[in-house]
Every structure is written in structure tokens, then in C-alpha cells.
Design a protein around this nucleic acid. Structure first.
Length: 567
RNA sequence: GCGCCUGUAGCUCAACGGGAUAGAGUAUCGGCCUUCUAAGCCGAGGGUUGAAGGUUCGAGUCCUUCCAGGCGCGCCA
């Protein structure tokens, strides 16, 4: 249940009754514990508009509101804040519900375009943020009951593929498992540079490919399969929910590109400028105030990524019937997407009712503030990043854990390594540049994935020691002390947090929530004995543990981070 | 030149349609393990929110100007 929304609606109605007009209650979590659980800030703004006393208005609103069974205590504070404290019954009732997450009343069909690497090269750190943030958003929206269409818009077409296919052809097929994918790419481009005959063959491949020659296509497909399996291995390691079904690359739109240009022309949007076909929209200007074109066809007849993106957008509207389309790319593509959306609407390829959202994110920096790269300046493959995380995690787990057999040890190392990489990224507001720092990420102290995993493991340990089956455990909760109560309140805020993340495509809110949940649990755990408590307390506290564990597990699952029963 | 993004504690980051005394983690210092995992808990210090104006009962958040950094602006994606 979305508690914040419930309060906002109830108080909003009261505001309406009192002021005889629409006025938002502006309910948010209380900024300080002494102000209760939630606060409504709407009175001051409305009072000013109506030229009346805000404290008096706040009192009238509280008097006119129906908060029975929800709020135990209200208080008017300061210039007109309404502070709300949830009632014991409400907290108990909310926790007693079998359903942890309430699905959306109006589920949407949501397309989410993320990861989208170019298959000419292996996945590298440049793909990390889009992949990890997009995936967490997708999982969250899916949990909220929406229908998700993950779209991995991979780069699988164009000049580099001629080179790679040509190189692949010259190789002994049996030795080409592409285990060292980047090495393969490097060899191919080196040969392309230094071997004119090879370069000629490669160019011929591109021509053959684009004219649809059967043999070239077969070899191209073979290469794409090879490269895709490399990509899938990385996704699997990182626990990314993308699979081959979600792949719909640039090549999928080849046959529609000419039609896109024709349709733009029919819509009266197409101009010819320096031999290239493009769309001018008056809201976009470039240097010296000149109109800024969006090029859709080069003077040599070739198409551009704008064209492909328009075709993809049309597919997502016409075929997938999307209500909402999200893109996760770095901020540099901001202008591209603004133009893309504007042209899509102007051409009526996509109706205005379809929400088009670009969700940009900042760069990956190293601790000196420079772009995150390896020592020699080259980009870091994700495979290498993952391996390094495992190495570091192995050292820490070895030093901290005992009593883990070999299989468990590997499992713990893997969950911690992957969790650390993803959580470090997900826990930050994506708009900012992000400083990638192994040491703080794998220190495993404070606000990190292992902290959450550790809390979960502690709870599981309680269940194991007490021989409880958390799945079937249903007992009433009584909130006797402050730490129990604060834990319960936080659990009840899960729904509103998920909805916030889904609305804004900002998973860091979920991380902040889970961290707060975990620290409240840790305080509870330190101060409230569970297994050794008297029968009544024991049942209630175990029930609190069950809810905490379930919430943690579900939340971490949204982030694509594994939980552990021991560590 | 025009446009977009960013600037918060030593460091890494929060602050959700403007809200109460700007919060965490880390680092530093001091406490807490014969009792459910110390990867933990409790406490202390640490700030002119890049600068200056303005709007407002109230500004890290909105407006203006400036400073600093990053990115983008026709045939790559």
C-alpha cells in the first residue's frame, strides 16, 4: 500500500472541503523523527493564496479530514505544517497484508531501451551504467505490474562488421570461440590498417552485406551470434535480465529506413540540404542561430542513426503499442533525443499521448576525476571488471568468513562482487558523473551492497537457529519500543518508494530506502533480542524479521543483486 | 557564439511538484563482543550548499548575472 499517497488523498479531500477549491496536501515523509511519520506542507501555500491564516487553515483541514484508523496523532507546527503519526493498528494492519507490493491500478505497456552496445566490440565500462540502471528500472516497473518490453538496440550493422566478418572468414573456424573478443577486434583492425588486400576484401563485404548477398549475410549472422553470446555471458554474470529475446538491433530496421524517409517527405517535413535529406524544426537552432537539421539520409544515400531510431520508435508505437518509452543513454545524446522526439511527434509517427523519456546519466570517472580507463588509456572490458571484483571480494570474504564450504564460498564471493559493482552505481543519482573507486566500493562498510546482504544473512541465521519457515510464518506484530516501530514504519514505505523509482527512473531512491531499512533493522537487532525474548515478543519480533527479509529480498531483486543466507 | 549538464563536510554521495535545525557513508577520535554473524551498534568533531543579487512567511532547490568544470551543435553512433 502506498501510505504517502493514501494520506495525500485523504488530506487533499479535506483541503478541498475547507477551501472549496483544489489544493494539494503535499504529503511527504517527515523531515525529522520528532515531526511524526509524515508531514503535509500544503497549508502555507494555499493560505497565502486565500489570504488567510495558515495555522488556522491547517487546523480546519485536520478537523475536516477522515484519517480514522490511519493516523493516531496530528499536530500543527511552525507556520502551518501538519505532522502525522501513524497509528499502531494501521501499521499492524498494513504489515499483516499478504501482498508486499500492490500492482498498478492502470498497468502500462512500457518499452525500455537500455544497454544497447555495439557488437563490433566487447562490452566495456562505457556500457555499465545504461545496463545496470536500465535493468533496475525495468525490474522495478515490472514488479509494479506493468508490461515491460526490454529492447536491446544493439549496434549490429555498418562498416566495422565488414572488417570483422572478413577477418573471421580468414580464420580457422574451430579456434574462434571469441574467448578473447577484444584481441580479435584488435587483430582485425590492425590487419585492416596494414593489409590493403584485406581492407579491400572487407570493403567488399560491406557492399555485399548492404546489397543483401546471401553468403555475406550468412557470415554476418554467424559473427553476430558469436558476439551476442559474448554479450550474454556478461549479462549473466552481472545478473542482468536481458536475454536474446530482447535483442532488436539496428539491422532489424534496415527494411523500413527508406519508408521512414518517404513518410517524412509525405508529412511535409523533409528538406534537401547540401545533398542530404533532413528535417528542420524551428525550435532547434545551431551555430549562429542557423536552423539545426536532423539528418536522415546522407548525400551518398546512406542512412543515419536518427533514421534507425525513428524506425525503432515507430515499431515501438505501432507493433509494441507502447504507452511509455524510456531510453537510458549518457547525457551527450540529449540533443539527439530531443530532436528525435520532436520529429516523431511532428510526423505523427508517434502520438503525443505516448510518453517519450530520455533518462541521461553522467560519465564514469576515476578517483583523479579523469574518465575511467585502464593505465594505457584504453577502455576497460566488463569481463575484466567482473574478474577484478571477484578477486577483491575473494580476499575480503576469506578474511571475514569462516565455516563456509567451497561451494558456498564461491557463491558468497560472486554475490558480493557483483553486488558491489552494481550497488555503487545504482546508489548514486544517475545525473551526476560517477566516480568509480574500487577501494570504497569493496571496503564493504557503510552504504554498500554487502551491508544489505549481511543484514539479510543475519535474519536468515535467526530463522535457521530457531527452525522457522519464514514463508508460512504469520503472527501479529506488537510495536513495544521505538526501534521496532521505526522498522515497521520503514517497511510500510516500500510501495511509495517503488512507485517513485518507476515514475522517475531513478533507482538510487530504492537504494537509499533499502539502506535506511537495513540500518533500522540493525538498530532493532542490537537492542531487541529475538529468539531469547518472551513468547509474545518473540513472535512479534520474528514477524518483523520476516517482513524485513521479504522487503530486502524483493528490493535487492529489483536492483538485480543477490541475497545470501550465510556470509 | 548558442544550447544542455554539473558545482553541497577532507573524500564519496543524499536532500523526491520551494518547507522546520542541509543529512548519510568514509576518514579521524572515543565507547560496545562470556548472550541471536563486530562486514555490526552507540557517541564526538567536521558546512558561507562555487560567488553576488533578486522573488518568497520560507531558497541547496525558482529568476538574473558572473566564476569553474564537462558535453553537444550536418553527412559517426
Amino acid at each position: 500500500m502506498n501510505v504517502r499517497q493514501l494520506l495525500d488523498e485523504r488530506l487533499g479531500e479535506a483541503f478541498g472541503r475547507v477551501t472549496k477549491e483544489w489544493a494539494p496536501a503535499l504529503v511527504s515523509p517527515a523531515s525529522r523523527p520528532e515531526y511524526g511519520d509524515y508531514q503535509a506542507n500544503g497549508a502555507m501555500a494555499v493560505a497565502k493564496r486565500l489570504k488567510t491564516n495558515p495555522r488556522k487553515l491547517a487546523e480546519d483541514v485536520v478537523g475536516a479530514s477522515d484519517l480514522t484508523g490511519i493516523v493516531a496523532e496530528t499536530e500543527i507546527a511552525g507556520p502551518g505544517f501538519i505532522n502525522l503519526t501513524l497509528s499502531q493498528e494501521f501499521l499492524k494492519g498494513t504489515l499483516a497484508r499478504a501482498q508486499l507490493v500492490t500492482p498498478a491500478a492502470k498497468p502500462e505497456r512500457i518499452v525500455i531501451d537500455y544497454s544497447s552496445p555495439n557488437l563490433a566490440k566487447s562490452l566495456h565500462v562505457g556500457h555499465l551504467r545504461s545496463t545496470v540502471i536500465g535493468d533496475a528500472t525495468a525490474r522495478t516497473l515490472e514488479l509494479l505490474g506493468h508490461t515491460l518490453y526490454r529492447q536491446n538496440h544493439i549496434g549490429d550493422w555498418g562498416t566495422p562488421f565488414g572488417m570483422l566478418v572478413a577477418y573471421l572468414e580468414g580464420q580457422d573456424q574451430s579456434s574462434n570461440d571469441l574467448g578473447d573478443f577484444d584481441h580479435f577486434y584488435a587483430l582485425a583492425s590492425e590487419r585492416f590498417e596494414n593489409d590493403p588486400a584485406f581492407a579491400e576484401t572487407a570493403r567488399k563485404f560491406v557492399v555485399d552485406l548492404q546489397s543483401g548477398k546471401e553468403a555475406a549475410l550468412t557470415q554476418w549472422k554467424q559473427f553476430i551470434e558469436l558476439s551476442s553470446s559474448h554479450m550474454q555471458r556478461i549479462y549473466d554474470q552481472l545478473n542482468i535480465s536481458l536475454n536474446p529475446d530482447h535483442t532488436r538491433g539496428e539491422s532489424a530496421y534496415n527494411n523500413d529506413l527508406a519508408q521512414v524517409v518517404t513518410d517524412l517527405d509525405q508529412a511535409g517535413l523533409l528538406s534537401l540540404s547540401d545533398g542530404a535529406k533532413c528535417v528542420f524544426l524551428k525550435e532547434f537552432t545551431g551555430k549562429e542561430g542557423k536552423p539545426l537539421p536532423m539528418l536522415v539520409q546522407k548525400s551518398d544515400g546512406g542512412y543515419l542513426y536518427h533514421t534507425t531510431d525513428l524506425a525503432a520508435l515507430r515499431y515501438r508505437h505501432k507493433v509494441l503499442n507502447a504507452d511509455r518509452i524510456l531510453y537510458f543513454t549518457d547525457g551527450r545524446q540529449n540533443l539527439h533525443f530531443r530532436m528525435l522526439f520532436a520529429v516523431a511527434h511532428a510526423s505523427e509517427f508517434v502520438p503525443k499521448s505516448t510518453k517519450l523519456e530520455h533518462h541521461p546519466f553522467g560519465k564514469l570517472l576515476d578517483s583523479t576525476g579523469r574518465p575511467f580507463r585502464s593505465r594505457d588509456g584504453s577502455t576497460i572490458p566488463l569481463a575484466q571488471l567482473v574478474e577484478q571484483a571477484h578477486e577483491r571480494a575473494r580476499a575480503v570474504v576469506r578474511s571475514k568468513s569462516s565455516n563456509l564450504d567451497e561451494i558456498e564460498f564461491d557463491e558468497v564471493v560472486h554475490a558480493i562482487a557483483i553486488g558491489a559493482i552494481k550497488y555503487a552505481d545504482l546508489s548514486k543519482n544517475r545525473l551526476n558523473d560517477y566516480t568509480f573507486d574500487w577501494d570504497s566500493m569493496l571496503a564493504f562498510e557503510g552504504n554498500t551492497a554487502p551491508y544489505l546482504q549481511y543484514a539479510f544473512a543475519r535474519i536468515q541465521s535467526l530463522f535457521a537457529r530457531g527452525n522457522f519457515d519464514p514463508e508460512s510464518y504469520r503472527k501479529d506484530i506488537t510495536l513495544e519500543n521505538q526501534n521496532e516501530r521505526e522498522l515497521a514504519v520503514q517497511i510500510c514505505r516500500f510501495q511509495e518508494t517503488l512507485e517513485l523509482v518507476g515514475r522517475e527512473a531513478m533507482p538510487h531512491h530504492l537504494c537509499a530506502y533499502l539502506y535506511e531499512l537495513t540500518s533500522r533493522f540493525m538498530r532493532f537487532y542490537e537492542t531487541c533480542p529475538v529468539l531469547d525474548a518472551p513468547e509474545k515478543d518473540r513472535e512479534s519480533r520474528l514477524a518483523l524479521c520476516v517482513h524485513t527479509a521479504k522487503t530486502l529480498e524483493t528490493g535487492l531483486d529489483c536492483l538485480g543483486i543477490a541475497t545470501l543466507t550465510r556470509m
